[in-house]
Nucleic acid binder design. Structure first.
Length: 271
DNA sequence: AAATCTCCCTGTAGGC
DNA sequence: TGCCTACAGGGAGATT
């Protein structure tokens, strides 16, 4: 499932084929994604030069001189680079075709992703404007979490998965970071000390950086821009391990549902 | 304002 | 073997 590391991996993989390149056209075979692909987007993108390719949260941002495109991978999305157009198979919903003939092809079986555009400043787009801090920047620290949690009364796991607080921490990495920080996922976010939030910040940053280094986590669909899976799945310590022994203390890993999401933790290591 | 619920979609796994 | 159901989940938008 694409979380921050998977999106980062994808962006780095397709950057050489998009940045500085001219978009010849976008071909949409399936327009009914999370939001429909607008016909205006197709005409807007044609002929544009890509000034920069970057990640913001879990969005891939394709910047033009004025405005740009946003791609979200949803939960089953992936993007690949093809040297030239070849026939698409099922679930390959759209292609960005550059003037050099390279094909940036989007696949998303569950259609939870999207392709959006804006003719004005891209960071003002409604999807980006309300996003919280980037977890791998200095703005993400214990003070930020403590202050944000003060008026909240939710489980800490839901708190760190709130994109208005911090972006990019999805279900898998939330469980993993809380285990590494020794914090129980159901702990009320308002009751966590600044010192413990400091440990959580470090844990989130470490788990995300390790996952980026491993090319992300592939459980089902995720592949990078050349079609390879990520290898962080083998480094998961609690996610998907309910009933198995904790790798640290040996007690049984538990599973609980928080906010409709499966949550894994060690009841002895996490308090 | 914050918390909770609902929904979008389809492949896969498990039960019978 | 084949059918059926439950489940996976990011996140917006409605509701409480």
């Amino acid at each position: 499932m694409p979380e921050l590391p998977e999106v980062e991996t994808t962006v780095n993989g397709i950057r050489p084929f998009l940045e500085g390149e001219v978009i010849d056209r976008i071909v949409a075979r399936e327009t009914q994604l999370r939001w429909p692909i607008s016909p205006d987007l197709l005409t807007f993108a044609a002929g544009q030069t890509v000034r920069a390719l970057r990640r913001r949260g879990k969005y891939i941002v394709i910047e033009f001189a004025h405005g740009g495109l946003l791609i979200h991978l949803g939960m089953s999305g992936s993007v690949r680079v093809l040297p030239h157009p070849i026939s698409a198979i099922r679930h390959e919903h759209f292609d960005i075709i550059t003037a050099r003939g390279r094909v940036i092809r989007y696949r998303d079986p569950r259609k939870f992703g999207c392709l959006l555009h804006t003719p004005t400043a891209i960071d003002d787009h409604p999807r980006l404007r309300t996003l919280g801090v980037e977890p791998l920047t200095a703005a993400f620290d214990a003070a930020w979490l403590s202050r944000g949690a003060r008026a909240r009364r939710i489980a800490v796991k839901m708190f760190i998965m709130d994109a208005k607080v911090v972006v990019g921490v999805g279900n898998i990495y939330a469980s993993e970071a809380l285990f590494r920080a020794g914090i129980h996922p159901q702990c009320n976010c308002a009751n966590i000390t600044s010192v413990r939030y400091g440990r959580l910040v470090t844990a989130i940053q470490q788990v995300l950086q390790q996952a980026i280094a491993e090319g992300g986590t592939t459980l089902q669909d995720f592949v990078n821009s050349v079609g390879e899976p990520g290898y962080f799945a083998r480094a998961l310590k609690v996610y998907g391990r309910a009933g198995e022994p904790c790798l640290h203390c040996g007690s049984v890993i538990k599973k609980v549902v928080l906010g409709q999401r499966s949550t894994f933790y060690c009841g002895r290591c996490q308090r």
